[in-house]
């Protein structure tokens, strides 16, 4: 019975993540359009796009790794989702979130992009490979402040578990974004890179790289990537909410918090042009790193 709850809960989580992620994507498009003084597509535009992509034929492949790539990505997103506490007390989504910790999560999150990169590599399109190298390079950039922020939290609360961090926030009554502000700043700056909006959209850069890694993938491949990307966005946002904003007791609060934090990279991105790769890396090794170090010092002092 418990197993059934687990499975059903897992499916519910995936659906929730998919829906929320996709809607957020649509909303972002809408917001972007409004900022550009346009009307923009409806908020459900992403669902239509996804459905259309799923309906397209997928007539070709360049080898089995291209097929596996999106599958890897999806697996990674869903498995990562399984280890994220969606709601504070588990609630409707009793996943595996009490059995993992942050470091594990960090590495699990890499699994998908690497698989995806392999898939992109097999297509033989140079743009794909270039996009992948950019993405990996950028990842090295933002991982440093991000990990610094996480380590600062770990030190501060003597736990590496996400649930542990949430409990610690619940006990102290303040969110981590207030109790360890530097870590929050570093993490938020790292988040700019993590979401790959402008100015850090160097991976897909449509005008330079013809959308980069996905340039050979249409139809169902693209659908898989799109939906796993949405799930992934949800995962990241929930993770931020969990570790910096005390988690969420119910769905409404979860949506509020995630949306508000999501606006940071989105709004920053709308008004930004694109960086070159090395500029992006150096950006992350500038102020974000500084705040990361501050966070570490702060955490080790207090």
């Amino acid at each position: 019975m418990e197993l059934l709850t687990h499975i059903l809960g897992a499916i519910a989580t995936v659906i929730l993540a998919f829906v929320v992620g996709m809607s957020y994507g649509g909303i972002v498009r809408k917001i972007t359009a409004r900022v550009h003084n346009r009307i923009g597509p409806p908020w459900y535009q992403n669902f239509i796009d996804a459905f259309k992509l799923y309906g397209k034929t997928t007539a070709i492949h360049h080898g089995w790794m291209q097929i596996m790539g999106p599958a890897f990505l999806m697996v990674s997103s869903v498995v990562t989702l399984m280890f994220i506490p969606v709601l504070t007390n588990g609630g409707w989504f009793p996943n595996l979130n009490f059995e993992g910790d942050l470091i594990f999560l960090l590495y699990l999150m890499v699994f998908g992009p690497l698989g995806m990169a392999l898939g992109a590599g097999q297509t033989g399109n140079p743009n794909s490979a270039i996009g992948v190298t950019r993405g990996l390079s950028q990842m090295v950039g933002f991982e440093i402040p991000w990990v610094m922020a996480l380590v600062a939290l770990m030190i501060q609360f003597d736990t590496t578990s996400i649930t542990g961090l949430m409990e610690a926030q619940a006990q102290s009554g303040t969110w981590n974004m207030f109790s360890s502000p530097f870590a929050f700043i570093a993490a938020v700056l790292a988040m700019l890179g993590m979401f790959r909006y402008s100015p850090f959209d160097i991976v897909g850069a449509p005008t330079e790289l013809a959308s980069g890694p996905v340039s050979e993938n249409g139809g169902k491949y693209l659908f898989t990537m799109m939906s796993s990307g949405s799930i992934f966005a949800f995962v990241k946002l929930t993770l931020y909410v969990d570790i910096f904003m005390g988690g969420a007791d119910n769905l409404v609060i979860l949506l509020l918090k995630t949306f508000s934090i999501y606006m940071i990279p989105v709004l920053y991105g709308i008004v930004s042009p694109r960086y070159r790769t090395e500029q992006a890396i150096r950006f992350f090794w500038g102020w974000p790193l500084f705040f990361g170090v501050l966070a570490l010092i702060y955490a080790s002092i207090f």
């Binding site: 359009a33 346009r38 923009g40 239509i48 796009d49 959308s211 340039s215 050979e216 249409g218």
Partner: peptide, 15 residues
């Protein structure tokens, strides 16, 4: 603003 109609640029013929 063609995007309001769902029109959007695609980078490669595959998509």
């Amino acid at each position: 603003d063609a995007e309001r109609l769902g029109v959007r640029g695609a980078a490669t013929p595959r998509q």
